[in-house]
Design a protein around this nucleic acid. Sequence first.
DNA 1: ACAGCCATGTAACTTGTTACATGATTTT
DNA 2: AAAATCATGTAACAAGTTACATGGCTGT
Lengths: 204, 204
Amino acid sequence: MSVRLSLLAILDQGPCYGYQLRHEFDRRTGSIWPLNVGQIYNTLERLERDGFVRRGETDAHGHVYWRITDTGSAEVARWLSSPVRRTTASRDEVAIKLTIAATLPGVDADAAISAQLVAIREHLALLRSDAPVTASHGEAELLARSLVRDAALFDAEAEERWLEHLRRRLAEHPAHALALGLATDRPKRGRPAKPAAAPAPAVA
Amino acid sequence: MSVRLSLLAILDQGPCYGYQLRHEFDRRTGSIWPLNVGQIYNTLERLERDGFVRRGETDAHGHVYWRITDTGSAEVARWLSSPVRRTTASRDEVAIKLTIAATLPGVDADAAISAQLVAIREHLALLRSDAPVTASHGEAELLARSLVRDAALFDAEAEERWLEHLRRRLAEHPAHALALGLATDRPKRGRPAKPAAAPAPAVA
DNA sequence: ACAGCCATGTAACTTGTTACATGATTTT
DNA sequence: AAAATCATGTAACAAGTTACATGGCTGT
């Protein structure tokens, strides 16, 4: 929901045309989160469908301006005044992946962790090299981009820490203390029925 | 892609029926990432469509077993051996939101930051209270769940750090050093055409 | 003339997510 | 008999993402 609402929040500052919205988003978030242009027009149509924006005038240059509605402004205000909740949807891809890997017998979780560590450290080096932040124009742009970079940096550092933590935990425990085979003896309740083929054994 | 591939990786251990897959996923990730049951069946159909699983036998209890294909196993191996890349799609919702908020003139970014800090600290307190980790069965389950919890914890801590960092930065700089009004004088190139209404002024 | 950017738009598709329908079985 | 759980499935949708088509303008 962040792209959609970010665009809406920018529109709350005044009418913009599609390409301009992209520029405004880019100025603020920089090269770390480039936005495909097509997505802008997509999102604008969906915002219109939901009553948050109206298609406005076309100027002499052919630019199609979009205007926020009152409903849209209210939505922006609501967005800004309420925090992002950590819901079920806050799924950390790396954490899911490696937890699953670590709990599956026969999977080389160490290798997966190492590969992830290499990748994240490369990423950290890149972030720390300042490359993404330079090549801006105004001071405000520079500041904004450094903040975005720092967010990515802190996040990557947290990932690195967790990976090291995970590796330590795995090392502490014997061979496969974490290994969880497929549970057997499951069907205690529910739905015995239809005649069928042979029951599949729960793996080797 | 993590749910889809996690389910596939579990199936790589042996045939499972839908509900069982949910159980296996839950055992490993615990209450932090509950999985809607419907999603399982959805995902299985999509995996079948992509040739990664086959619908297998139905046992005496009516359980429909699914089997991974060779293509599917290869996919799991590929997944496990390659790290998750930090691509453009690694979008941090909070970071986007507050960067946008901080760069929009007239927006009370401090309030938004404070609200987010309150929320994240509540979340941290909850995570640290151990509540999500207890109430497991085996030792392995306990370990797995504590790892998942730690991932959430490290992530939340990183967010807290960034929020404090952001607040500091905003305090350091005068009033609205970060404020970026909508850029004017944009249309230098491209597409002058059609006659139209009045050009919309770039806000007050 | 041509490459490259400005600009708008369309179509298709991905994963994730939820709500709902259905029905059997076990527990209380 | 009712409630809770096991189990399978369907339908619809959200948000993000990409690929493609079109065309005009600017700079070389």
